[in-house]
């Protein structure tokens, strides 16, 4: 467990950002990941007083505050009505309900974990992150950036009719995934995202496959193009095989599902 000397519940995002520029200060989301380190912090910066724990819907987009919990995304009816089961599928295997009531969207995206279910699925949608200092930028760009001292305030998800599906594979229930895969379609273009490779998630686009052969060809391409690594959860070769299976399942559910 980390230690800290001070706790500041920020009154404004600006205040949080300024405090976060000091090397020994840190923003705390749910704290579920941070608690596993043994660092000595000067000040913990709490964003929970900034109204960032809500999911807003406008005609054009959803705006999710950084302090929205994984459980909120899992159970939100408006997200479900617009994106089908994707938000539920991306969250439901993560540890347990109690954990998901604590862990936040901000902490999850800032961390950009290779194994992240959340990053994998959100990359399949059209998302922008809103940072306190750098402003708005595409999630795909943020996912590649090195860690810095900016604060993730919100995530904007475009409501443009994109349909998406999510698949993951775990060795045991609630474990970190061996492989994650999301697929989405907009205007006949298919986007495939593969995560937990075990490196950070990667996106590819293809014309949407109308035939079984075209779908198999895409799955083969994903297997051939993406690089997969080995760790204690699985070898690179095992992940390559899994990628074909999960990719196929995700595309199939897009074909079957005209609603989500």
């Amino acid at each position: 467990m980390f230690t800290a000397q001070q706790y500041v519940k920020a009154a404004t995002l600006e205040e949080a950002y300024t405090l976060n520029q000091k090397r020994n200060n840190v923003v705390i989301g749910g704290g579920c990941w941070m608690k596993m380190n043994h660092r000595r912090y000067q000040t913990l910066i709490d964003l929970s007083g900034l109204g960032l724990d809500i999911i807003e819907e406008t005609p054009e987009e959803f705006v999710l505050g950084a302090m929205v919990t994984l459980r909120q995304m899992e159970t939100d009816e408006a997200l479900k009505n617009t994106f089908g089961n994707g938000f539920y599928e991306m969250t439901r295997h993560i540890v347990g309900v109690q954990f998901r009531n604590c862990a936040t969207l901000g902490g999850s995206l800032y961390s950009r974990f290779g194994f992240s279910d959340i990053l994998t699925f959100l990359l399949a949608l059209d998302c922008e992150v809103e940072l306190a200092h750098a402003g708005r930028l595409p999630l795909a760009e943020y996912a590649q950036m090195p860690y810095d001292r900016d604060i993730l305030a919100k995530v904007h998800i475009l409501k443009n009719g994109r349909r998406a599906a999510y698949e993951s594979f775990r060795q045991t229930a609630t474990d970190i995934p061996v492989l994650t895969c999301a697929a989405s379609v907009l205007n006949d273009t298919l986007r495939v995202v593969v995560g937990a490779r075990p490196m950070r998630a990667i996106c590819m686009e293809f014309p949407f496959p109308e035939t079984e052969e075209a779908m198999e060809e895409i799955c083969r391409k994903v297997q051939e193009t993406v690089s997969f690594g080995s760790n204690l959860r699985g070898s690179g070769e095992y992940r390559r095989r899994l990628a074909g299976v999960l990719c196929r399942r995700a595309i199939c559910s897009l074909k079957e599902d005209a609603v989500c």
Partner: peptide, 20 residues
């Protein structure tokens, strides 16, 4: 944050008190 033994309710919702 894995075992759930430390579960309590915060405003009625279950959370992990070891992590909160």
């Amino acid at each position: 944050s894995n075992c759930g033994l430390c579960t309590v309710h915060l405003d009625g919702k279950p959370i992990l008190s070891c992590s909160y």
